[in-house]
Write a protein that binds this DNA or RNA. Sequence first.
DNA 1: TAAATTATTAAACGTATGTTTAAAACAAAT
DNA 2: ATTTGTTTTAAACATACGTTTAATAATTTA
Lengths: 204, 204
Amino acid sequence: MDKRDKKEAILNSARALFIENGYQSTSVRDIAKKADVNLALVNYYFSSKEDLFDLIFDNIVLQILNGMKFEISAENSACENIEHAVNTYTEALIKNPELTSFIFQEIIKHSELLNSRIATLQHTNNFIKVFINSLNRDIEKGIIRKIDNPEIIILNIVSLCVFPFISKPLVKKVMNIDDKIFVKEMRDRKKIISDMLKTYLTTF
Amino acid sequence: MDKRDKKEAILNSARALFIENGYQSTSVRDIAKKADVNLALVNYYFSSKEDLFDLIFDNIVLQILNGMKFEISAENSACENIEHAVNTYTEALIKNPELTSFIFQEIIKHSELLNSRIATLQHTNNFIKVFINSLNRDIEKGIIRKIDNPEIIILNIVSLCVFPFISKPLVKKVMNIDDKIFVKEMRDRKKIISDMLKTYLTTF
DNA sequence: TAAATTATTAAACGTATGTTTAAAACAAAT
DNA sequence: ATTTGTTTTAAACATACGTTTAATAATTTA
């Protein structure tokens, strides 16, 4: 009950602190203290602060990407895929309130993180291809309007879905709402976003 | 040519470093070195690193808010205001590529910054009121569709405009484009965003 | 010019950091 | 029971940080 427990306690404490305060503002001593463990044990089990962070960061990225994964199908219409994406993304973001800000913070700060972990985004790339295919197909079918660059549509979807969550403190302040109402507004907004995107594509 | 010069050199260097690396990753020694000035001069002129940062932060927020200010008019239609907003925001963000990420980083990290500087956002609040008024008026006129919460429309505008700029490294990587094409895409996107918002509001 | 004020400097202070060391405690194996 | 290997510990190391000090240089004032 002891061996693995201390290692795991370190992992959990580090994860919580990194998410809450970021890499720089979290000291190894903070981690050890929260895990109720001797300082040297952190380096004993995880070699260095950076190694520990990388481990946790990759884990978090995977977790949130898994939450955003959904069965996108080339058979679905573009509009169906959009609605599905908006719903899935919004719910994943509601479920992981702190993770998004954390990932964004770290990626913007050290964009090298992207290079070394681009493999993790492979699934995302496939997803984008299927999405664009469904758009192009429906354009040829004449179901939706002609789009010069379909990637922009995807960018719009992600912008609409993700932005309110990474600017949550700002949004709450300006709209003068608390966490509970924030979630409700985001849920209500799902339909508005989908409608807006679909109306734009199908009106021409 | 010396007195003000050194103080200003510190200010400029600090500004550049804070924007590039954030508060935590910028040391007073870095600032002094870049300004080619003795270490102690930084504290001599600006008391503390935090005071210096606050000064620069407020300045940057003002700068970007000024760039985003435009003559919003209660006489304009809601759709005109939207088009105007999208154009102005996008151009302001193109003009200040690093500022947006910087402000976001710091605000998300220390959301207390919002409380002490809420006065700076006063203009933003007035702007929002005028905007919402124009929406409500056009709804009553029957020109645009009924909206439950007009604030959501504003959130959508800001999401669409701002998100690509704060996630610029990610967007460039996924779309496989460089800075120059990024700017071109953002310019082209202005019309798409305006069209999408206007089409949604006027189709019902 | 002399005194007073301001600007600049090298050095140090105190604290915090990530990491390492070397010894002790513990568990497992022979 | 002794050896072997692993886990845990207190302490130290080396470096970086923001800030202060006390002395010197430069400038302004009287």
